Simulated assay, not measured.
Amino acid sequence: MPPIHVLLISGSLRDGSTNTAVLRTAQADAGPGVEASLAAAIDALPHFSPDADVAGAAVPAPVAALRRAVGAADAVLVCTPEYAGALPAVLKNVLEWTIGDGGLYEKPVAWINCSGPAAPTGGADAHDSLAKVLRYAGAMTVDAACARIPLTRADIGPDGLVADAAARAGITAALATLVAAVPR
C-alpha cells in the first residue's frame, strides 16, 4: 500500500517560527506509512485575485505548484499563529488559491495551535477564522486531530524541532489521528 501523503502548511513566514517547528517535528516523527512534506515557497504566491484565476487560463507558477502539492496530498495539517485576531494574511492567501481548483474539497484537514501562554485568546480566533475558510472550501475538518499545544521559542531545540517530549507526543498524536481519517 502506498504511503499516506500529508501536506504541512505553516501560516508563519517568521524565521525560527514555532509553527513551522511544529510541522517539521510532525514531518520528522511521521512514522512508517506516512510521508509528510512542508509546503514550499508560500511567500512566493502572488496576492489572490479572481482575475488571475479564470477557468482555462494559466495560473502563476507558484500557484500551480501549490495546487499540485495540495492535489497530491491525502490530507493537510496546518499550524498557524494568530495575527490581529484572525489567521494571518499569508495563510488566507494560500487557502484562497485552493478555492479555484477545489483542491481542499473533501480532503481531510486538521490544525495544531501552538500559541504560547501569553496569547490573549490562545489562538482561538485564528482557529475560528481558519475553520470558516475550510468549511467554505469544502474541506473535511478532522476535529479529533485538531490540537492546542502551547509552545514558546524556548521549547524549540537547536535542530529546529520541538524539544519538549509531551508536546512532541501531542504533535505525533494529532498527525496520527489525521492520518487515520484518510479514506483508503
Rank of each mutant, 00 (worst) to 15 (best):
P3G: 12
H5W: 09
L7T: 08
S12G: 03
L13H: 10
L13K: 02
D15S: 14
D15A: 15
G16C: 01
G16D: 07
N19Q: 03
V22A: 02
L23I: 01
L23E: 02
L23A: 07
D29I: 10
D29N: 13
D29T: 11
P32Y: 04
V34C: 01
V34G: 01
E35C: 14
E35T: 15
A36P: 04
L38M: 00
A39N: 02
A40V: 08
A41K: 12
I42P: 12
L45G: 00
L45N: 00
F48A: 09
P50Y: 05
D51G: 15
D53E: 10
D53C: 09
D53N: 04
A55K: 09
A61E: 15
P62S: 10
A64L: 14
A65N: 00
A65H: 01
A65C: 01
L66Y: 12
L66G: 13
L66C: 15
R67N: 13
R68V: 06
G71Q: 12
G71N: 11
A72V: 08
V76T: 07
L77C: 00
L77D: 03
T80L: 04
T80R: 00
P81E: 00
E82N: 03
A86S: 15
P88L: 04
P88Y: 01
A89C: 05
V90S: 10
L91D: 00
N93V: 03
E96K: 05
E96R: 09
Y105D: 14
V109I: 10
I112R: 09
S115C: 14
S115W: 11
G116Y: 13
P117R: 11
A118F: 15
A118Y: 14
A119T: 06
P120E: 15
G123Y: 05
A126C: 13
H127V: 14
L134A: 09
A139W: 13
M140A: 14
A145H: 02
A147H: 09
I149H: 05
I149P: 05
I149E: 06
P150D: 11
T152G: 15
A154V: 08
D155Y: 13
I156C: 10
P158C: 02
G160E: 02
L161E: 08
A163R: 04
R168Y: 11
I171A: 13
A173P: 08
A173L: 08
A174Y: 07
L175I: 05
A176P: 06
L178Q: 07
L178F: 11
A181D: 10
V182T: 04
